[in-house]
Amino acid sequence: MAIISAEKVKFYYENYENSDNQGNTPQKPVLDSIDLEIKKGEFVAVLGHNGSGKSTLAKHFNAMLLPSGGRVLVGGRNTADENEIYEIRRMVGMVLQNPDNQIVSTIVEEDVAFGPENLGVEPGEIRRRVDEALKTVGMYDYRLHAPHKLSGGQKQRVAIAGILAMRPECIVLDEPTAMLDPKGRKEVLDTISRLNREQGITIVLITHYMDEAAAADRVVVMESGRILLDGTPREVFSHVDKLRQVGLDVPQPTELCYELRKHGIPLPEGVLTAEECVAALSMLLEETYADN
């Protein structure tokens, strides 16, 4: 069952300078007729370079932006229907790139309580949800700390806890690790993978780190407001040339096998991880050594 479905979604930013007297905006749409279904429980990574439309699309998933054409349904509710906005935003939580832009309180647990308080959840239940959410992201010991003194990765996990406390069905993360160091990136990624696996929460991860995308069930590549590729990481990353053309990387192990294949070395397509690459290479090397 689809939790989010985008049907022929178009989006233009209003630009008064460029518009003619009738208010028509002639420029290219940011989103150009996007059709996309995200199933319940999926872990979907959305890749694309800056300006490809990936963040704009993500903002349609919890009604932060409304389509200029077409429609977005969240759990069957139309995001353009004002009466549904509260429920849609409860179902789909959003984590942004800069952890400092989404902290509202001076104490971690108060920050996490902000969402459920706004939903009118009764106090005892808020307490339970806040504790549970902080434990889930591994930040319970920091519940009385000041958020501004935490590391970037810790702040992002607090932001995720704030969403968890609203009991969402889906979390959309817009480049949540772009400003983090390698340790913080790992903390955040481990947390979202676990939420997906253990609690069945649908994850939409907007990123331009290919290794993060490789961990997802499905990868959607955006280019110029359209969907260029959509498939499993293995399928998507086998299109090395196409990805490079649109300014994206492929994971290093994939690139290594791709380059060797170009030289006639019979390596399989769609190698994603260092381990797979080592396995494939060692098979070939095995034969070399056996020959000697």
């Binding site: 290594l256 380059e259 060797l260 030289h263 070395i265 019979p266 090397l285 070399t288 020959d291």
Partner: peptide
């Protein structure tokens, strides 16, 4: 690629 190619080429 430079390091592996000669090793693998032999095999191919």
């Amino acid at each position: 690629v430079e390091r592996l190619l000669p090793l693998l080429k032999r095999e191919v």
